[in-house]
Nucleic acid binder design. Structure first.
Lengths: 148, 148
DNA sequence: CTTGCTGCAAAGGGTTTGCATACTA
DNA sequence: TAGTATGCAAACCCTTTGCAGCAAG
């Protein structure tokens, strides 16, 4: 299958192909993010979107493993496309981020937890295991601004 | 100073000592958590608390470094007491958690990221660096329940 | 006595839901 | 055609805020 074609991705996830889902998924495939639902609505030039549709699509996509939720502690949920492992290593592979608390700039970190971590946690016999790992702080640019 | 006395902790953080803050802090010192604001209101037997006071206290305590915010991706913010490093290693030392998405049981994991992680991130020159790391899944008990 | 905290109530903002309509398979 | 997704608007829930009264230092 073509891992860049929204239609094929939706079909292989057993989801109905609708114009809205196609556009949303294409947006996430072409833009790294992560994005808030509000940002997605703003940035998607194609078509018009009801926020409820965005929220419902994100919930559906998350359940299908197509997107991942990102939390930075500022009260907003951010989403990004999550390629399946079979897609090989690209910029959609599992990773984490560093966000500036002031200007909200998000830097992608090509790291994840070491295997020992997961082995240790497997001992608890939890299924559907997920982890949230994100960093935040004040970026060099905003550090300068803060000095009056 | 006595690291178990709410009054002394508040004073050394340059915060005014009020009855509400005393009770909230004592609760967090005696109970590991993390707790949502709602849970804290329910569980604190002493006195009555307005939710606004709880929210404001948590914001104040966080700024003073007395508490840490915990995110598990279910849309709720949870708080727990955060001892300063000078307190030595106890159950309030920095750590992370594993939460069951179904029954919300929270297990404390006495782990944190390996030093290499932080070194790598220091290269970005961010100040006030924080990280959120939490695990979630379905616990063995709830796995049984799910079979109808 | 001055500054700052608390309680109450109202407002705010993000997210979810009910329902009629439109569309996919 | 049956079942599902969408749009719209209202409802929800957690959180924040304005303001008057009260308490701490």
């Amino acid at each position: 299958m073509n891992h860049h074609d929204p239609d094929e991705i939706l079909k292989s996830a057993s989801l109905k192909v609708t114009e809205q889902r196609r556009v949303i998924l294409r947006f996430l495939l072409n833009n790294h993010g992560p994005f808030t639902v509000e940002e997605m609505k703003e940035l998607m030039s194609e078509g018009s979107f009801d926020l409820a549709t965005l929220y419902r699509s994100m919930a559906t996509f998350e359940e299908a493993g197509l997107v991942e939720k990102r939390l930075f502690g500022d009260g907003l949920v951010r989403w990004e496309y999550h390629a399946h492992s079979l897609c090989g290593h690209n910029h959609h592979t599992h990773h984490h981020h560093l966000m500036c608390q002031s200007c909200k700039t998000i830097t992608t970190l090509d790291i994840c937890l070491p295997p020992e971590f997961f082995k240790m946690i497997e001992a608890y016999n939890y299924t559907q295991l997920k982890h949230h790992l994100e960093f935040s702080g004040i970026c060099p640019e905003c550090q300068k601004k803060e000095v009056p």
